[in-house]
Nucleic acid binder design. Structure first.
Lengths: 156, 156
DNA sequence: GTTCACGTTGAAGTCAGCTTCACGTCAAGG
DNA sequence: CCTTGACGTGAAGCTGACTTCAACGTGAAC
């Protein structure tokens, strides 16, 4: 153990729960930064842990890394998020979560209306309508969260 | 216009809302099938539209194409989904949506508790805790649905 | 018969968010 | 000093769901 207060990438990984490879990746994206030892190894100040907490929270809420970067860049001087920053940003996240919940709920209600009808009509069934709100994400799928993904056997 | 009741890939694409390339892709995965003209062009029976409605509904609910394939394979003889099939399968989807909504709601509640606390502690904050329910999807992100993704321009 | 929008193919590209690899270097404990 | 495990790099790979490409064939309308 070293007696200064800097963390190695392994220590930061263990404490933050991010893989070391992810930390390197985040650094390339400019989300976090590190100083270097004479030998070129990364050393992190403890505040990086807090920054990573912020990043994880944002990811949990569904922000892309680009969006996380943008959010972090609203912090003057690239400082780590303070309590006030956190409050301000998390409020916008709450609205986002609300919208996501609303969309899923609308989908569920559409499903309820469809159960038993058997229509499966492209024109009439909200669930299978490509022009539907929940399906309007562009070509292809509406992904549901990996983390929220039910182990599900969706009909298996 | 041809006077038989078969659809070209372009017509099927227009009516289903899937891109022609997606239809070819689905065929490779065995989700749909087509007969061929003497010249090798695809021709689809109208029931394929219904099958595609089913696929879109399943995708909207969050099933992967693998899961869709599995669900379709529970239909005896590879037939297209009937009303009874639809009822049976959509019931399992409802449970899935419920779970997803619950997970998002839990996340929002966690956020509510966190707003203003400013803790951002890896140990204490549910939102940023890597061991959290919503974050337990493995390394990295919890994706939120593309389709449910708020325009949010946190920077995208 | 000519035209030309529409169809065909396999291979490769795209996006996000990482992980893995191969191979060489660093640094802390004994 | 030596060993051993952690760390360094750039490049490439992975997953999922498609899209795009290039080069060519088809077929319905006029």
């Amino acid at each position: 153990m070293r007696d200064d207060d800097l963390l190695t990438v392994g220590e930061l990984a263990a404490r933050s729960g991010f893989a070391a490879s992810a930390l390197r990746y985040y650094e390339r994206l400019g989300l976090i930064e590190a100083s270097r030892t004479a030998g070129g190894q990364r050393r992190y100040v403890r505040a990086t842990l807090r920054r990573l907490s912020f990043i994880r929270a944002a990811r949990n809420v569904g922000l892309s890394l680009d969006e996380v970067a943008a959010a972090l860049s609203t912090l003057p001087g690239g400082r780590n998020p303070t309590r006030a920053d956190w409050t301000r940003l998390s409020r916008t996240w709450r609205a986002r979560l609300d919208q996501q919940i609303d969309a899923l709920t609308a989908l569920r209600d559409g499903l309820d209306q469809c159960i038993g009808c058997g229509c499966l009509s492209l024109r009439r069934c909200a669930l299978s309508n490509p022009g539907d709100v929940a399906a309007s994400a562009g070509p292809g799928a509406v992904y549901l969260p990996r983390g929220l993904r039910v182990a599900a056997d969706g009909g298996r």
